[in-house]
């Protein structure tokens, strides 16, 4: 039971990290119809800039601002210089161009920071753990990640439902031309949306910094999960991205933790472990396939 609770929290924490990644990607994909493979690069930029600033200044707060600013700027630049020219192109062109951005970013980080991974310390205020249940200590930092992810989800929901910017973004998703004809500078709006999506990815990267190694190519492993999330959630839907991210986080984490135990009931321990290992890494893809069989457009398809 304690193990289950712990794994549940781990799953949720992976889920909110995935949500930060997928919120931006699903908006860009759903509204601008651009496949942006380079979204993982913003995650990496957030992690690297955050880790570097934290290392040199010793201030995690400063690292947060630096990471958010750098990934936002990287996002706006990438949109204005590269992606804006791809909106009307075929998806294959977009995949090629943004794949090029990945190669560029990875190589650039190797040039600036070298091949060795960076390690980032958990900020002092968030180190240690608390007893969340009798006999179950849980790292404060991971709880903080969970809280930040949930806070961002609430904030995004408020922005989307309560503000005019949110309304304009949703309106632009169904009829871009009409929004422009009513006096909204939609090009600028999309640059901002893109930048904010990149900033959320950078935030995810920064928060993953103390948990994972900060290294070139770190964005690509999470990018694949992110695409699974937005396909499950329904492309273009932030609510879908949230639900999808939590589900994928839980399925992945719980699968890895409990499939071996479950299979041991049926198979010999050695076979069970090897089958479980491969099943666990496939679990989210099997889950995605199941969702798509039942709901081909994902759980919350955006209006179109």
């Amino acid at each position: 039971m304690l193990l289950f609770c712990e794994q549940l929290l781990n799953g949720l924490q992976l889920g909110v990290t995935l949500f930060l990644m997928s919120a931006g990607l699903t908006l860009v994909f759903g509204i601008m119809q651009v496949i942006n493979l380079a979204h993982g690069s913003f995650y990496m930029i957030g992690a690297y800039v955050g880790a570097t600033v934290a290392l040199h200044s010793g201030s995690f707060l400063l690292a947060i601002f630096a990471a958010l600013g750098a990934s936002w700027l990287a996002g706006c630049l990438a949109e204005a210089l590269i992606l804006r020219h791809l909106y009307r192109r075929r998806h294959l062109d977009q995949v090629l161009a943004t794949f090029g951005v990945i190669l560029f970013c990875n190589e650039m980080t190797r040039i600036i920071w070298g091949r060795q991974p960076l390690f980032m310390d958990i900020p002092a205020a968030l180190s240690g753990s608390v007893q969340i249940l009798p006999g179950l200590p849980y790292p404060i930092y991971r709880l903080a990640v969970l809280a930040v992810g949930l806070a961002v989800a609430v904030l995004l929901w408020l922005i989307f439902t309560r503000t005019r910017i949110g309304m304009q973004v949703r309106a632009g998703a169904v009829n871009r031309e009409m929004v422009a004809a009513l006096g909204v500078n939609i090009t600028l709006l999309y640059t901002l949306v893109f930048g904010c999506g990149a900033m959320l990815a950078g935030l995810a990267g920064l928060m993953a910094g103390p948990i994972l190694a900060v290294e070139p190519g770190m964005g690509e492993s999470i990018l694949i999960l992110t695409f699974v999330v937005i396909v499950i959630g329904g492309i273009g839907s932030v609510r879908g991205a949230f639900i999808g991210a939590v589900l994928v986080g839980l399925v992945d984490t719980l699968g890895r933790a409990f499939l071996p135990l479950l299979l041991r009931l049926l198979l010999s321990p050695a076979t069970a472990d090897s089958v479980a290992a491969s099943l666990a890494s496939m679990a989210i893809y099997i889950f995605m396939a199941l969702v798509l069989v039942i709901k081909p457009k994902g759980l919350f398809p955006a209006h179109h």
Binding site: R164, V174, V179, L182, G183
Partner: peptide
């Protein structure tokens, strides 16, 4: 549009995923 030309387009082109209130407020200026 900001110079003062308001368009009611062919086929109406209401934002289907916005409420009536949001349709009116989203681009109001």
């Amino acid at each position: 549009a900001r110079l003062g030309i308001g368009l009611v387009p062919e086929g109406r082109q209401i934002f289907a995923n916005l409420t009536v209130r949001e349709n009116l407020l989203a681009t109001a200026a």
